[in-house]
Design a protein around this nucleic acid. Sequence first.
RNA 1: GUGGCCGUAGCUCAGUCGGUUAGAGCGCCAGGUUGUGGCCCUGGAGGUCGGGGGUUCGAUCCCCCUCGGUCACCCCA
Length: 437
Amino acid sequence: MSDPEPTAAAPAGPVGTPAGPFRAPVGVHDVIPPASARWEAVVATFADTVGRAGYGLCQSPMFEDIGVFARMGEGTDVVTKEMYEFRDRGDRHLALRPEGTASVVRAFVEHRPTTPWKVWYASPVFRYEKPQSGRYRQHHQLGVEAIGSADPDLDVEVMVLLADFYAAIGLRQTPLVVNTLGTPAQRTDYAARLSAWFGQHLGDLDPVDQAKATDHPLRVLDSKKRATRSVVAHAPSILDSLDDEALAHFDRVQAGLSAAGVEFTVDPRMVRGLDYYTHTLFEFRSPALSEAQNTIGGGGRFDGLVEALGGPATAAVGFGTGIERVLLACDAEGALEVAASKVKVFVVDVVDGHAAAAITIQLRRAGIGADRAFDGRSMKAQMKAADRSGADYAVIIGAEEAQAGTATLRPLRSTGDQTSVARADLVDAVRRRLTDA
RNA sequence: GUGGCCGUAGCUCAGUCGGUUAGAGCGCCAGGUUGUGGCCCUGGAGGUCGGGGGUUCGAUCCCCCUCGGUCACCCCA
């Protein structure tokens, strides 16, 4: 920690003092206008979609005791390899949330609300991994968790909500893949059978998968290696390890999706990286994205997690969907066009700026988006700014208007003529024109 | 963490087989039009050619390292 050798791009300066301007750390990014307008729309649409289903906001902290996340499972890479962990000044061992569910479950255990507890979140998620397109060290997830019910209808509810959300923002292609892992015992049984089976075909697996075949046999199932895939195609199915009850749960889920008009495919080889899943498991993908990161949302049941975090045995189901990937999918599909600005009126004041100040305040208080120029710029510059602002109208105050107590109202997006209105009637005149259009 | 490719203006990119003051388009600012944006014309600002070291009389160009970006693997949203 006291190594005086600076290895970064600033050998001349002290450690941690870059020579040039600061840049965002590796793998993170700024969301700024105009692109941030779509971000707002995504979050607002999500809140509306799940809010109508009775889900309330759960705003839990971005960091927790590291144990909260460690309980998600030893075989979970986001916990074992990718966690942003640190010690605070009180020597508490903490970690930035690597996913959304654990924090919500911790909050459930801490507050013990009545069930079913249905909540949603919008939160940054941190994973220390090498960034690439659609994969960041800080990304953002929208999600819901419904805690306290084992009813398969609830599995259906969350899946339909996610499908409806994607539709609401304009995505057309979001194929849904579902699978089941049964109970933890059935899952363990299946893993053992799978491991034994891979053992008999070890030589046919890709070398990188041979090591995983005994430790994490489920993980081999979604290998991208060609050799492994041809082996996996004939591997035993999870469905043969399930009892009647688990099969009935899965059947009810499929029937519910069909009844809701949500198309899906069953893939008995689909697994996900989080170890806590039981029974229903699902993924929404975007065929518009490259295969390496085409999952835009996923989730499932986690009936054992509440207990693992110190609560009573409690069934639960939920999902998370990545805002960045959803927006990439929207880009690819040309979906989600939103207005870059809420400004409807731009006030041009070439006298002294007092009228601009008064009129913008008056318009905003009347609920009308209004902006103005600063620094006493020329009329040409202010008109140019008015055009760029995206406003529909310019209100112009020059010497004549100031003298006469009027304002010139000039349309910027249509061919109509500009008109003169009394200052006292300005807000009404603007409102009338905006509602007529 | 491993590997491939790429770093020239705010953005998108030319360029130099190593040679004087590094260019274009878009964007920005100003003027043409001292009361009018979007089109047009003119001018202007803006660059440690990612950073450091090396080779050379001379490096934006060649070599090494490094940082960053990007793509793939691993894994995942």
